[in-house]
Amino acid sequence: MSVWIYILVMAAVTYLIRMLPFTLIRGKVRSRFFRSLLYYIPYAVLAAMTFPSIFYSTGNTVTAVVGTAVALLLAWYRMPLIVVALAAAGAAFVTGFFV
């Protein structure tokens, strides 16, 4: 089967998932429970995506843990996104020479 058909199916499914709720939900959500849910979802999604995946993101658990610690520390002091991201990568890279 042509690779293009796979790509088309993947793109169509992915676009519909993104488009339907974003386009169809117009009104303000009034339910307090649902508003609370939507308030917490971004943080819950990002937290669940980050842990434990971050520990396997560099191919070595030690370098990843060091990078994670640096990211947590800099994020605590409200450094910009790119600073936190690059410092985490830099810390993981440097640690790589010692493990």
Binding site: I54, G59, L81, V84, A85
Partner: peptide
């Protein structure tokens, strides 16, 4: 390998200040 951590570092930079 080291660059692989960047996206997660960004996530941390988003959630930690909000948690604080």
């Amino acid at each position: 390998n080291a660059l692989g951590i960047m996206l997660y570092g960004m996530f941390i930079a988003i959630i930690i200040p909000a948690a604080k």
